[in-house]
């Protein structure tokens, strides 16, 4: 799948889970940029992304992402 396509789909998941239609994701976006995105909603996002793309992340992968770009790279590599 195209990287841009993944980003668009992840953005849709973010909007849905965090209940905020105004969220715009960029590679450099971090949890500091989105008010609703914290350690708790992070897990809900992970579960929704895993379900959507039918993939499974390792704990280390999840804990090492520092921005959206790294998350998208990880999804693309699956």
């Amino acid at each position: 799948m195209e990287r841009n396509q993944i980003l668009a789909e992840v953005q849709e998941i973010f909007r849905d889970v965090l209940d905020n239609e105004e969220i715009e994701l960029l590679d450099a976006t971090t949890a500091d940029d989105i008010e609703e995105w914290d350690s708790l909603t992070h897990i809900q996002l992970i579960v929704a992304i895993e379900k959507h793309f039918k993939i499974k992340f390792t704990s280390k992968e999840i804990l090492s992402w520092q921005n959206i770009g790294q998350m998208i790279d990880c999804i693309a590599s699956k």
């Binding site: 350690s39 992070h42 897990i43 992970i46 579960v47 704990s59 999840i62 804990l63």
Partner: peptide, 11 residues
């Protein structure tokens, strides 16, 4: 502590 556990129990 919480995040690794939460990730492990996420399903």
């Amino acid at each position: 502590v919480f995040m690794p556990l939460n990730i492990r129990f996420r399903d």
